[in-house]
């Protein structure tokens, strides 16, 4: 699910940046620091929409750097267990297939695919197929997240299509 979320980020500024263009530099630094990152708590931070407040900028005793506690609004994407999402298949293996839902990578194990759908080793491209459906690279599928794993820099999801109203979509 995409959310609009208020977040904070602390920026340390070297005294050489203090001056008329300081706000611009803080803004640019905030964008480059947080956009495209991912944390377990907030999910993927896709884009900063607006900066609400950069804070007073308190000079740290001892080294002269100023600390700005910025507050900003951002578009974030976080997957939840039990959520149904649409995605695109990127890679099909015997053990299952990978689906990309925007920045999120999901894996659907062959055990979580309907038993009618079999891995087809003889096809030109690796695929899962039943009589009327084929899952191969670039197929759009609707899936349900059954679990997520959070790494330092990425969230990874395990998903199923073995329920009603899930599977290939057009």
């Amino acid at each position: 699910m995409f959310f609009i979320k208020e977040l904070t980020h602390t920026i340390l500024m070297h005294p050489s940046y203090f001056g008329p263009r300081m706000l611009e530099i803080i803004e640019a630094k905030l964008h480059s620091d947080v956009q495209g990152t991912c944390t377990g708590q907030y999910g993927f931070i896709i884009a900063v929409l607006e900066i609400i407040d950069v804070g007073p900028g308190i000079v740290l005793p001892g080294n002269g750097q100023a600390e700005f506690k910025t507050r900003y609004k951002a578009i974030v994407f976080k997957p939840f267990k039990g959520e149904v999402l649409d995605g695109v298949v990127t890679n099909v293996l015997r053990a299952g297939f990978f689906v990309e839902v925007g920045p999120l990578r999901c894996f659907v194990s062959q055990q979580l695919v309907h038993p009618d759908m079999r891995f087809d080793a003889n096809a030109a491209v690796p695929s899962f197929s039943s009589q009327d459906q084929v899952i191969e690279k670039d197929t759009k599928v609707r899936l349900k997240v059954v679990g997520t794993r959070v790494d330092q820099t990425e969230i990874f999801a395990i998903a199923t299509i073995k329920e009603d109203h899930l599977g290939v979509i057009d």
Binding site: Q35, C38, I45, A47, I75, V101, G102, P103
Partner: peptide, 27 residues
């Protein structure tokens, strides 16, 4: 809505990350 919001951001400096591009493609 994400699509419309991201369209305004596209091409601006600092937004160009793999996460951003994949999301644009997705939406």
């Amino acid at each position: 809505e994400v699509k419309i919001l991201l369209k305004e951001k596209e091409g601006k400096p600092g937004v160009d990350s793999p996460v951003f591009n994949k999301t644009v493609e997705y939406v």
